[in-house]
Design a protein around this nucleic acid. Structure first.
Lengths: 226, 226
DNA sequence: CGAATCCTTGAGTTCCCTCAAGAGAAGTGG
DNA sequence: CCACTTCTCTTGAGGGAACTCAAGGATTCG
């Protein structure tokens, strides 16, 4: 797919005319990454930002013992590391491709010039940053106020909403899901077992069927425990 | 203090000329809050954003059992709830004045008009949002990867850096600090006692003296435990 | 069919939260 | 100025959730 076409499909660049997209295309670096390949490391200089064109990318923090906390998983059309552009400092986390991915890189300086002559782009950018902040606020809330079963319940209910069905497909391995929920695979596994025994869900490989929404919602809100 | 003067002192509005500040002043609502007064609640419509002129404000999430997780504490010159302006939805957390405070409110629609004709303001706004994201990333890392003593050590070292001395003054009650660290006052109190017994710190009311930076840094990085 | 990765289950331990109660500090009002 | 309330901080005992370590089973993929 050509660069301009790919750009036009990115939500961040909606509302831009074709002339502006052409200009954008001139500054893009079109990159490929394979599964497991690092895109940048925490502490690297933030000289620009990225947009996932295809594939999947995880953004994560590492503890000194190697435990990882996933902050986000991004798919097609989603920008990441935008904050580095404006904070003008180094990346606060690691980024790695979860599968073979095509990624556009936008260099900081050239991009800031474009943004200044393009209010629509600026507004989109602020909207993107704001949505990101809201997501972080929810994650923080979950991590500090809810136990793991509650976090899992929230996640499952969100997935069911997104996919508009009760049989949900995890688009992540269970290990990654554990990391996203701020826990470890063993704990996640045990909780899935418990939920199954309590007839809240039925699992079948990467597919989970929600059997009792009320019970899950009670867990999600912290009213009930497993 | 007059509104325009106050505006000129706000980092977010640096680089704006006096004509632009005048325009800004026209849309500001100058508000006062007393200690403990709610500014907005989670879920309220986000019809604008705020800047603290004087006093102190906490932004926090509540669990269903009433435990609170502080996301930020803002002081003079700092904007808050900016995300609501661009995400165009409701506030994702609660806001309350911690002491008598003067606060400027900027209504969403009028402010977005100003921002679109003012690239410098847009850039400042994006920088502010980006810094906020980085802070959140650190908080998430702390909450999920570090034990409470580690989080406290990080916080103390940061305070010492900000205040440029080893005798640090807490600008929060210990209960609030506990909430900011994602724990409860009892746990914080015990850890302070332990740190004191280990000769890492000396406490004297709201003042804490750092006696052994190396030990604190070892805790902060997770190499060592209490 | 092996090799690698991912998932599950068990046993033991640790951290921190809950509940409870008392001590200290601070502000109010008589 | 002192008793009073109120808020904050501290300390103790107990329990539970989740992590560590370890090993076996399942799945995928070349």
């Amino acid at each position: 797919m050509k660069i301009v076409e790919a750009l036009a499909a990115i939500p961040l660049f909606q509302g831009m005319n074709s002339e502006q997209l052409q200009k954008l295309a001139l500054i893009v670096a079109d990159q490929r990454y394979s599964r497991g390949q690092a895109i940048f490391a925490e502490g690297d200089a933030g000289v620009g930002f990225y947009v996932v064109i295809s594939g999947k990318v995880k953004i994560f923090k590492l503890s000194s013992e190697g435990k990882e906390q996933i902050l986000h998983v991004f798919g097609s059309g989603e920008p990441f590391a935008e904050a580095a552009v404006f904070a003008g400092s180094c990346f606060p986390a690691h980024a790695m491709a979860l599968e073979t991915s095509r990624i556009f890189f936008f260099p900081r300086l050239k991009f800031t010039l474009l943004i200044q002559e393009n209010p629509a782009l600026a507004m989109n950018m602020m909207a993107a940053l704001s949505m990101r902040l809201k997501k972080f606020a929810s994650l923080i809330e979950s991590l500090s106020l809810k136990e793991v079963p509650g976090r899992l319940a929230v996640h499952l209910l969100l997935l069911a909403e997104e996919q508009e069905r009760d049989e949900v497909r995890l688009d992540l391995t269970k290990s990654h899901l554990a990391s996203l929920l701020g826990t470890i695979p063993e704990t996640l596994s045990r909780i899935l077992t418990k939920m199954t025994k309590a007839d809240m869900i039925a699992t079948n490989g990467p597919s989970i069927t929600l059997l009792n929404r009320d019970a899950l919602e009670a867990l999600a809100s912290g009213e009930e425990r497993l």
